[in-house]
Simulated scan of single mutants.
Amino acid sequence: MLQIKAWYWLVFAMVLIMSELIIPSFTIIWFGLGALLVAAVMWAIPQLSLGLQLFSWTLASIFFTILWFKFFKMKMEDKTKAGISLEAVLGESGLVVKPASTDTRGVMKFTVPVLGSEQWAFICHKNTHMGDRVQVVDVSGNTLIVKIINT
Rank of each mutant, 00 (worst) to 15 (best):
D103L: 12
F69D: 09
L115S: 13
L86T: 12
F69C: 06
V41T: 07
F110D: 05
M74C: 02
W68Q: 07
A88Q: 13
K109A: 11
A121M: 10
T104E: 08
S56P: 03
W120H: 04
M74I: 06
K70I: 13
T111Q: 11
L33E: 00
S49N: 08
K81D: 13
W68E: 06
Q119G: 00
W68H: 07
F26A: 07
Q47I: 14
L50Y: 11
S101R: 11
V107G: 01
S56T: 08
L48P: 03
A40P: 02
V89F: 11
L54W: 11
I62E: 04
E118F: 04
G94M: 04
E77P: 00
S93I: 05
T58P: 04
V107A: 07
F64E: 02
K73N: 11
L48W: 06
L90Q: 08
K79S: 10
F69Y: 15
M42H: 03
F69W: 15
W43Y: 10
L50N: 10
W68Y: 15
E77S: 05
I66C: 12
G51H: 14
P113A: 15
D78V: 08
V89P: 03
A60Q: 02
F122A: 01
L37Y: 02
S25C: 09
L86P: 06
D103C: 03
T80D: 11
L90Y: 13
T80V: 07
G94D: 05
F26C: 02
W68T: 10
K75T: 11
A35S: 11
M74K: 10
K70A: 15
I28D: 04
S25H: 11
L115G: 05
G83R: 06
A60I: 02
A35H: 00
G116I: 12
L90V: 03
A35D: 04
K73Q: 13
K75F: 06
T58D: 03
S93H: 09
T65Y: 08
G83L: 07
E77Y: 05
L52A: 12
D78M: 03
S93V: 08
V38E: 01
W57P: 01
A39I: 01
G116Y: 02
W57D: 00
P46S: 07
F110N: 04
L95E: 14
K79R: 13
Q53S: 04
T102S: 11
D78L: 08
K73H: 08
L48K: 00
K75M: 13
K73M: 07
V89T: 09
V89S: 09
I28L: 15
A82V: 14
V97F: 05
L115C: 15
F26M: 12
I66W: 12
G91F: 11
L50K: 09
L90T: 08
I28K: 01
V107M: 07
A40L: 15
T80K: 12
V38M: 03
L54K: 00
F122N: 01
D78R: 09
F110E: 06
F71H: 10
A40F: 09
L90I: 12
L67H: 10
W120L: 04
T58E: 03
L115D: 14
V107L: 11
A60D: 01
F26L: 14
L50C: 06
V41W: 13
V114T: 08
F63I: 10
F110K: 04
V89W: 06
L37E: 01
P99A: 14
T80L: 09
M74A: 09
F110Q: 06
